[in-house]
Design a protein around this nucleic acid. Structure first.
Lengths: 216, 216
DNA sequence: TCTATCATGTAACCAGTTACATGATTTT
DNA sequence: AAAATCATGTAACTGGTTACATGATAGA
């Protein structure tokens, strides 16, 4: 671990290398395997760009052509294998992903930080929708997880357990905020409502602009 | 809400529109304001591409030139204002971000779903590092939050509260997994260790490939 | 005087996406 | 005979990033 800046940062590239560390495969087989193992749910994969990405990984010397097969009249299938450099890069990348929390700017956080542009009463409605979506998603994932655990070793379901945990945590938080706004416990909601209705920035808010809130 | 696929999805574009909904500004002022309000921490902003993005938003008709000023010998400053279409798009986008949880594929989830390639004993070390990083990050954010709350209305710190909550939740989960692996409560760790050491897929695992774990 | 910061932008690049094209084989 | 899916790829595009270029003014 210590790659200041990775030349490749497409997660599909990582998945490709991880799979090829088991054995050589041809691109279509890679796609199949990822799908069969349900990795689409936890890895951002765009199968449409698979061939482009594989070529790219090859260009970096992380994978290489291991064999070219052909059966009958079908198109050739090129088997790719992981190179030594590829194995090193993949393991290093994985280690970094596990050990170092990445700043990822989830979109909901983005929205929260600009939430003032939406009228508070609409926000309540929107948050309620989100909470419901999160809760039903939790229920689904929980169910899937129960089924998965019947056949698969824990090792293969940790990402799903994590997802469930984090979605649950989010739902809890959203419900909390929701209640605070709805019950008027948030404070300053009147200023907020007036601002979104009239477009005029309250005097109080304007004063805040000047000062640095992190100053002593 | 109902934009099947947004042409613009750079969060900086959203932030630009949100700011311009208050009043017309020139690009540099937009950057300044975002920085002053500490939005860099919750919105993925690349100030290097600000002018490119503003031009882009303009091309879509969401903002337009409101005025061109000049003082002394300085370069002209172009004031941009939000158009009606821009206001609609911005509010619609915001509403969607709040109400509909987005699938975002956090990198840690990606890593978890490929975790089998790393030796379990190394994973323990890496998770420990992550847990520590998360915990100290929580401490920092908590401190910042205390300071912020002294001057700012709740409305302006919700995103920070959310961040703190979610980071805490993650830390808890990581600690949990950590303990399970370290204490041998996870199960199948021997297979896993052997696999990463020898590269040979255990017979048990190979059998799993065939079947669909979601079948009845 | 020198540095920092104000304030503007452009040009080149690039990974990744989209959309299309091709034809074999298997299944219905 | 038609539909599905196996299996390959290419070409064009495009949003966004990087890196650079410019010059004014304010402050140390």
């Amino acid at each position: 671990m210590g790659a200041e800046r990775r030349r490749l940062r497409n997660p599909l590239a990582l998945a490709v290398m991880a799979l090829l560390s088991e054995r050589p495969m041809h691109p279509y087989e890679i796609a199949q395997t990822l799908r069969r193992r349900g990795k689409e749910n936890s890895v951002k994969i765009n199968f449409g760009s698979l061939y482009t990405v594989v070529r790219n990984v090859e260009k970096h010397g992380y994978v290489e052509v291991a064999d070219v097969q052909r059966q009958g009249n079908r198109p050739e299938r090129t088997l790719y294998g992981l190179t030594e450099a590829g194995r090193r890069e993949m393991l290093d990348w994985m280690a970094e992903l596990v050990a170092v929390p990445a700043r990822e700017y989830p979109l909901f956080e983005t929205a929260l930080s600009l939430i003032g542009v939406l009228p508070p009463d609409e926000v309540v409605v929107l948050l309620e929708k989100r909470a419901e979506a999160l809760e039903s998603h939790c229920a689904e994932v929980g169910e899937v997880l129960r089924l998965l655990r019947r056949t698969l070793p824990r090792l293969f379901v940790v990402e799903t357990e994590y997802q469930l945990h984090m979605t649950g945590a989010q739902a809890t938080w959203v419900r909390g905020l929701l209640r605070e706004i709805a019950e008027g416990r948030l404070g300053g909601v009147d200023d907020w409502r007036r601002f979104t209705a009239t477009g005029e920035t309250p005097e109080k808010w304007r004063e805040l602009e000047g000062q640095d809130p992190l100053a002593p």
